[in-house]
Structures are given as structure tokens and as C-alpha cells.
């Protein structure tokens, strides 16, 4: 169990770094959504099912959608 969630935390940190160094903005938005998804798993391991549901519905679903709408409105410019 300890190894499992240590690996999940490692994966979360790697996705966080990847979200900042990807060139295409779509890739980094999806990586940021992945960080939220893994955080939802971690909340479940911490015995917080309410927070896990909120993070999965809001952090993973709605924020990713809002980022992608903004990206579309700004036509994907930038580095």
C-alpha cells in the first residue's frame, strides 16, 4: 500500500513538471488534469471520499473544460 501511493505521488509530480515543460498547450492542460485525477485517488487513500468526489468532478472535469474553452477562444497562441 505504501509503495502504491508513493508511486502515485511520484507520477503526480512527474505530470506536474510535464505540464510546465510541454510545448503545446493542449498537452500541458491534459497533464494538469492528470495531476487533479491522481490527487483524487490520494484523497480516497486519505479516507476523504467527499473531497475525492469534489476533486474528480470539479478539478478533473470542469477546470480542464474551462482551460480548453479559453485555449480555443485565444486560438492556441503562445509558446
Amino acid at each position: 500500500m505504501t509503495l502504491l501511493y508513493s508511486l502515485l505521488i511520484l507520477l503526480m509530480l512527474i505530470s506536474g513538471i510535464a505540464a510546465l515543460i510541454f510545448d503545446k498547450l493542449v498537452n500541458s492542460i491534459i497533464s494538469a488534469g492528470m495531476v487533479s485525477l491522481i490527487a483524487a485517488f490520494l484523497f480516497y487513500f486519505l479516507r476523504a471520499p467527499d473531497v475525492a468526489m469534489a476533486e474528480a468532478a470539479i478539478g478533473t472535469g470542469l477546470s480542464t473544460a474551462i482551460f480548453i474553452i479559453t485555449l480555443y477562444k485565444t486560438e492556441g497562441r503562445g509558446n
Binding site: 505540464a19 510546465l20 498547450l25 500541458s28 492542460i29 494538469a32 482551460f67 479559453t70 485555449l71 485565444t74 503562445g78 509558446n79
Partner: peptide
């Protein structure tokens, strides 16, 4: 330097 990345 990109504003969307700053918000990420």
C-alpha cells in the same frame, strides 16, 4: 511566459 501556463 505564457499566461495560460501561469494559470496552470
Amino acid at each position: 511566459k505564457n499566461l495560460i501556463k501561469i494559470f496552470i
